[in-house]
Amino acid sequence: MSQARHSTARSLAAHAVLILYTVIALFPVFVVVINSFKNRRAIFADPLAVPTAESFDLVGYRTVLAQGDFLLYFQNSLVVTVASLFFVLLFGAMAAFALSEYRFRGNMLMGLYLALGIMIPIRLGTVAILQMMVASGLVNTLTALVLVYTAQGLPLAVFILSEFMRGVSDDLKNAGRIDGLSEYTIFFRLVLPLVRPAMATVAVFTMIPIWNDLWFPLILAPSEATKTVTLGSQVFIGQFVTNWNAVLAALSLAILPVLVLYLVFSRQLIRGITAGAVK
């Protein structure tokens, strides 16, 4: 077949570069996961080999499950992430609606005020946040983390969602008003369902940094009962640093849930990032 526009050589070169980079991106994860299933000798003898019948060993996983309270850590992470996500989406969508729908004095200023947090990281306020949490007795509670992550996620959520809400047809909302719907009903019944794709995007973007954060769990909630998976595995690995089986197993356990979640949501994530771009 004739190819007036597309040269085969160029597309082969593109594939070669992309495959090379894909290998670079995946190789470290691959090495850790395969070695977590091997016995100690096999890990060192041939780190790049996949586990065989002889070298297969779950001792690392047994150590992890016996030592760390990973189930609790996992639960803590889940609670914190889901709760923060809920508040970020709800409050963020409400504020975005107010900013995009109504003209009122100070609208611009309020938008800028809320957008400030995109550029200025919340971590810089840590000193005062800790004092505040100490004063209110919230240190070593998951509530402290949820509060901080909600505040942290709001600026970007408001920014993205208000962009999307500007795109919702005015006629639709006005039709709702003529039919006698209250502003609240218009928001919850008409607008929210329409911006669901944008909400999903915001959700993914909000979720990753919360799940992976080390700073605030370390400072605000380092107790055994409130450790998140990220902090828990950091501490565990620090303690078992010479037990390679355990370290590799712990790393694999920490990778897998995120990886599975990512693969499930990756289409949504990519669609979200490229939203509006696809014709």
Binding site: F87, M94, A95, M110, G117, I122, M132, L154
Partner: peptide
């Protein structure tokens, strides 16, 4: 519509920032 976001954001982010 604005209150929850502005309150949480102000209390947990802006006030501590200036507190710092």
């Amino acid at each position: 519509f604005l209150a929850p976001a502005v309150l949480v954001y102000t209390a947990i982010m802006i006030v501590p920032l200036f507190g710092t």
